[in-house]
Design a protein around this nucleic acid. Sequence first.
RNA 1: CGAGAAGUAGCGCAGUUGGUAGCGCACCACGUUCGGGACGUGGGGGUCGGGCGUUCGAGUCGCCUCUUCUCGACCA
Length: 501
Amino acid sequence: MAKFDKLTPRAEDYSKWYNELVVKADLAEQSAVRGCMVIKPYGYAIWEKIQAELDRRFKETGHVNAYFPLLIPKSFLSREAEHVEGFAKECAVVTHHRLKNDPDGKGVIVDPDAKLEEELIIRPTSETIIWSTYKNWISSYRDLPILCNQWANVMRWEMRTRLFLRTAEFLWQEGHTAHATKEEAIAEAEKMLGVYAEFAENVMAIPVIKGVKSPNERFAGALDTYCIEAMMQDGKALQAGTSHFLGQNFAKSFDVQFLSKENKYEYVWATSWGVSTRLMGALIMTHSDDNGLVLPPHLAPIQVVIVPIFKKQEDLDALLTVLNPLAENLKQKGIRVKVDTSEKQTPGFKFADYELKGVPVRIAMGGRDLENGTIEVARRDTLTKETIPFAGVEEHIASLLEDIQKNVYQKALNFRLENTREVNSYEEFKEEIKKGGFLLCHWDGTPETEEKIKDETKATIRCIPSKDNILFRGENSIFEEGKCMVTGKPSKQRVIFAIAY
RNA sequence: CGAGAAGUAGCGCAGUUGGUAGCGCACCACGUUCGGGACGUGGGGGUCGGGCGUUCGAGUCGCCUCUUCUCGACCA
């Protein structure tokens, strides 16, 4: 046995485990630029699956893709007061448009003569540039609604970054819609939250809680922020997606009005919604184990890897006479298969490596199997393997993939349910929050109380959950009225507190 | 921005009192291996983050500087 670096176990150092896994599973790495990551082909393949699945859902709900510029005039950002307040501290600014040779002869310097008339900021989000554009697109109620999405990169100059979870530059999609009525805009924001939740659960196998953000956690410039929240294996919460009802804030800031059927000018109602490469972090921290990544089959770039075990070329040739048709049959069923015939590594290395990369199903076949008409099938989620008859293995694999998809979801849901509890006093809360997980508590609805809790315990309100969530097993009093655990004032329902990423 | 740590081969690291820059992995060649991270032999690869200084001589000592990581602060 050769020496090789095993992952740091989760129990030893969760944060270290995550960092190592991202790099060793070939998902991403640090780049030469602080805070910016290189997403490697394997990681990007997963992101492409995420994109494809989401994009299809956006189209199905009537949205179209467009592209707006990377650079935003500085003055645009300040049009909406809360918006600028939220983002100003983390904007990269373009001030010049030319370099020139350093007179010292060492490299280049910024040409002071090339200073921009108006400085440009690299988008931290695109509401302002989009609403300045929508002004030109909208004049009548007949122009509405506008249902645009864009796939783009954005930049937020974060102090501390972590691959996928918080990077200075990240990839995302941002939907920006314009509506004639408040009701329609709210319905849109809620609909897209539903799309995110369905996608997270069915494709990513991540159970999420749908809810509304408290005022403290609301998007800068929104009237309401809806969100899906997930629980990571260390008991911390991760916001996996948000959808905002923006009211008429941006329409007023950019003077976007339409003439109604009644021939009256009205301001347009807006929403925006987005998910980012942070979902990759959620994916990793929801399912993976000490052996590496665990991918839900619906997202895995390789769903089934076939590893022939051979000594000589003729052994491989013999195996391939059955394995190539098998791979072909699986492809016919729409299954993503790789046959790894490389001689560069031994089978044992390949087994460990595909485990590290989270491939859901591994098939191995050697000379012995060939004689016996059997094949070895191993599943990544349970780390179990079985030797089964070769005949009819395709059907077995197809249903196995579905089993794995369901199992990883169920496992994550069970974990969340086991780590969600009701807490009634602030004293109890201070103790319980140290153990991690979601705490369901009564809160008086004031930012002051939330702030106090945050200062004293680091926990924040992740969301005010809506009723269509599985939050708890059995009896609970989540949606009953009660008294705030801190102030004793009345509370309409319990909210979710947690330490968040 | 505060505290700590670290920059030496592609990666991970060692380098004692200042004296010709090394190890493991990876890479290349050949051979043996191959059912859970194989092995042997041979080979290629370096501006020791950068600058200045001390010294006959600096990876090593001093000063300056740049960068990265971890933990805080910050994070709509």
